[in-house]
Write a protein that binds this DNA or RNA. Structure first.
Length: 560
RNA sequence: UGGGGCGUAGCCAAGUGGUAAGGCAACGGGUUUUGAUCCCGUGAUUCGCAGGUUCGAUCCCUGCCGCCCCAGCCA
């Protein structure tokens, strides 16, 4: 799709490093903490990390940053692996965990202590916070900062051996309590946590902090470029300090880029979880969720997601990207490949009064209007049909090209019909149309070549397959619900609409995982979770562009 | 009011000391048995603002303004 995309600043750096011979092979890593589901924001990071390596013949590690047991879970590692694989990336045998390096990490910690660059602090968490100072005031040295190497080493080993309770001590780097960079005010390196780790069990009761574990894990894996988001920019001096002091064999370089935020959606794991807890969505894979699992269930293709982030680009500027951009990528990914079908979402009965009572004709319909190679299928036509309620109006505006009293319209792949009369119920709602068809206008073979302005879709009532079809809209009413304290107060009450639809017969056996276009309505796919052969459930992946809807909307606004 | 980043069209985004690519959206028009697709066309006298250097500045310098991030024993 966007192949000729210009090099972004990170690819430029990598290109230069290859050119100058600084590196022969590029090694990157995607390092999620397995404490939640991956979302659109992660797609950017995944595509960047796996992308730059693949483009240069390098390779990428999928590394689980599992340094905080208790918050992490195997459910999440399974989900993350399947999401990354589904997106189209392969880590081959490079699936690692920060916990794989606990021994090496601990050895590095002792080394820092021996060099007098780390000490055991026995202040409480609260005291440490007080000693740290504020953004505008420098911090103060802890009274334990002057402990001798021997004592520190002894304490650290006893921490490791389980002699102390949680929070009694912490290992800190000895850097600079008055640094304007908070990350350099003697950051914690190890804390005590008597908790069973999902992989290392009870082997350890001290666990390394992010900065320490992440920097050294990068080095141990010989990562050349450690790509992360902007909020870690302030951590880079610490990252480099650690590399300077520990002097591992490899020296990775951290480079930061901006996160990708999507308009009208949230990506905070906590807030996403709150949606589930409040019951507004059914789970992490609800088709309205911005999680990879949700988007996949909704029917988005991996190619669409990859294209989307490629178009968004890699920069350092904060992004809040419009939904339309994503939807465009999704539509484009199906436009040429999805077969066309007919389905009626909100059915209105049409009786073709001059069509013989028991007659059925098989109409030949193209699977794709722009590609004859995709073949044709047969669709039954009979006296009683379903059409879309929106395709009929009693008092239609001039520009309404669909059915109206005494008006004509073409039934796609079939005949031209004329609306002779409409039947209403006691509320005045139109419940049935009586029409007549023109036998000379049969699609493809008709002897008449007359044209009508509008073409609508339809399904034979007798042959229709019943299905539940779920229509989705944005979850929130605010452009940037991320910044709201309680996004749940900004919910769009109409984010999900379920309709009892009528499908053309071929749709009875459309396989799960397949996407088709319901003509004039959008792209749809069976729901992986709720669909079954006996009761079909479809999701609308995305609508088609709809210029009529736009005209209507403008007309409405004009009246107000 | 400390430190670190970022500011090019409604949303993304190239670009460079020599006169502002592209995509999405929007708006016109053409084709069309999907108001889809496709095709064609329309946008910045201007690059956050103000000064300065220069023959010439979005690009270099100075000042200002705005937005984001940092005070976890989270990542």
């Amino acid at each position: 799709m966007s192949d000729a995309a210009p090099r972004d600043f990170i690819r430029q750096i990598i290109h230069d490093d290859l050119e100058t011979g600084k590196h022969d092979t590029i090694v990157t890593r995607f390092p999620p903490e397995p404490n939640g589901y991956l979302h659109v924001g992660h797609v950017m990071s995944i595509c960047l990390n796996f992308g730059v390596a693949a483009e240069t013949g390098g390779h990428t590690f999928l590394r689980f940053d599992d340094t905080n047991p208790g918050k992490e879970d195997q459910e999440y590692v399974n989900a993350i692996e399947s999401d990354v694989r589904w997106l189209g990336f392969d880590w081959e045998d490079r699936l690692t965990h920060a916990s794989d390096y606990f021994d090496g990490l601990y050895a590095a910690a002792e080394k820092l202590v021996e060099k007098g660059l780390a000490y055991v602090d026995s202040l409480s968490a609260e005291e440490i916070r007080e000693y740290r100072g504020t953004l505008t005031e420098p911090g103060k040295d802890s009274p334990y900062r002057g402990r001798q190497v021997e004592e520190n080493l002894d304490l650290l080993r006893r921490m490791r051996d389980g002699e102390f309770g949680d929070g009694e001590h912490v290992l800190r780097a000895k850097i600079d309590m008055s640094s304007p960079n908070m990350n350099l005010r003697d950051p914690a390196l190890y804390r005590i946590r008597h908790i069973t780790h999902q992989r290392t069990g009870d082997t350890w009761c001290i666990y390394p902090m992010y900065d320490f574990a992440h920097t050294l894990s990068d080095a141990f894996e010989a990562i050349t470029h450690s790509l992360c988001t902007l909020e870690f920019e302030d951590h880079r001096p610490l990252y480099d300090w650690l590399l300077d002091q520990v002097r591992p064999a490899n020296r990775p370089r951290q480079i930061e880029f901006s996160r990708l935020n999507l308009a009208y959606t949230i990506t905070s794991k906590r807030k996403l979880g709150a949606l589930i807890d409040a019951g507004v969505v059914s789970g992490w894979d609800d088709p309205r969720m911005p999680t990879i699992a949700g988007m996949r269930r909704r029917g988005y293709s991996a190619a669409a997601l990859r294209d989307f982030v490629a178009r968004a680009g890699v920069t350092k500027k904060d992004k809040l990207i419009e939904m339309g951009m994503l939807e465009n990528s999704v539509r484009e990914s199906f436009g040429d490949s999805a077969e066309r079908r007919m389905a009626v979402l909100k059915p209105l009965k049409v009786v073709v009064t001059n069509y013989p009572e028991k007659q059925i004709e098989m109409m030949r319909a193209m699977n794709h209007p722009n590609d004859a190679n995709m073949g044709t299928r047969e669709v039954p036509f009979s006296r009683e049909l379903w059409i879309e309620q929106d395709d009929f109006m009693i008092d239609a505006p001039r520009k309404f090209f669909r059915l109206k009293p005494n008006g004509e319209v073409r039934l796609r792949s079939a005949y031209i019909i004329r609306c002779d009369e409409f039947v209403t119920d006691s509320n005045g709602t139109v419940v049935e149309l009586h029409c007549t068809y023109d036998p000379d206008t049969r699609s493809g073979t008709g002897s008449s070549d007359r044209k009508v302005k509008g073409t609508i879709h339809w399904v034979s009532a007798e042959h229709a397959v019943d299905a539940e079809v779920r229509l989705y809209d944005r979850l929130f009413t605010e452009v940037n619900p991320n910044t709201a304290d309680d996004p749940n107060s900004l919910l769009n009450p109409n984010s999900l609409e379920s309709v009892a639809a009528k499908l053309e017969p071929t749709l009875a056996d459309l396989a799960v995982g397949e996407a088709v276009q319901f003509e004039r309505l959008g792209y749809f796919s069976p729901d992986v979770v709720d669909d079954s052969a006996s009761s079909r459930v479809f999701n609308r992946i995305v609508t088609l562009r709809d210029s009529w809807a736009k005209i209507e909307k403008q007309a409405m606004q004009g009246q107000n």
